[in-house]
């Protein structure tokens, strides 16, 4: 077997997972549709007053993004677990953490990026000003990978358990609270005339922290679940 470099390995896993996702396009679309639906339910619930909706917009979009990323996390490892691929990955001479990083990246491209792309449209529905919308998008770009990474730990821990989906949300949602706070805080700062840089920097710091720690923790969690 040809020994590939680490970046090559990560790219390989990403390409494989993206290909698999493209073969099952419905799964990708359901997450996106769920996101759009949850966001659209809020105006129906709280009333169509634009003043309230404009204030709520960032929070609603972020919470919806959080919930829909939970929805797709269950699939992160389960298919590979069921057909035995995951076992082969753990036996592979390459670092499991890097393989996990590739899977997380693919998961983000499939479930996070569409949300980021869809968010401006929904933001306009909530009458968000252009500047706030821009900060929201940057925040989502920085924040959604963190959601995928923290979620991967939960997905690995609940692998193959009954009622895994609900349990997964129970474990992961409290850990995602800082992301929610800084993401919505950035938009809040901009709309009150302050700078969003501090919030976005903190999100970036969280992203870096998650990037170095979560693949390794997820790999440990997978080893616990698979032994």
């Amino acid at each position: 077997m040809k020994k590939s470099s680490l970046t090559g390995l990560v790219m390989l896993v990403i390409r494989r997972d993206l290909l698999l996702a493209m073969r099952r396009r419905a799964d990708v679309l359901t997450t996106l549709i769920f996101f759009v639906m949850v966001v659209s339910l809020f105006p129906l619930g709280v009333g169509p007053e634009m003043d309230i909706l404009r204030k709520m917009a960032a929070g609603v979009l972020w919470v919806a993004a959080l919930l829909s990323s939970m929805l797709s996390l269950g699939r992160l490892f389960s298919a590979d677990y069921l057909d035995g691929t995951l076992e082969q990955m753990m036996l592979a001479p390459q670092s499991l953490s890097m393989l996990v990083l590739g899977k997380i990246a693919a998961h983000w491209i499939v479930s996070g990026v569409p949300l980021v792309l869809m968010a401006p449209v929904l933001g306009v529905q909530f009458d968000m000003p252009a500047q706030a919308l821009g900060v929201l998008i940057i925040g989502l770009l920085l924040g959604t990978p963190i959601l995928s990474m923290i979620g991967a730990i939960g997905a690995a821990l609940t692998l193959g358990l009954r009622g895994g989906g609900v349990l997964l949300s129970l474990l992961v949602l409290p850990l995602c609270i800082p992301v929610l706070i800084f993401g919505t805080g950035a938009v809040g700062a901009v709309s009150t005339g302050l700078s969003a840089v501090s919030h976005l920097s903190l999100l970036g710091a969280l992203l870096m922290l998650a990037l170095v720690s979560t693949p390794w923790v997820t790999a440990q969690a997978l080893r616990i679940s698979m032994e």
């Binding site: 730990i153 609270i177 805080g185």
Partner: peptide
């Protein structure tokens, strides 16, 4: 045991982050 132990450790790393973010969230709002 092992899975929940890992979760507890991840949680305890997160506790200070959660605490300060919540504090900041509150003062900002």
């Amino acid at each position: 045991d092992r899975a929940s132990a890992l979760l507890a450790i991840v949680g305890s790393v997160n506790v200070p982050i959660i605490y300060f973010s919540v504090q900041w969230w509150n003062t900002l709002h």
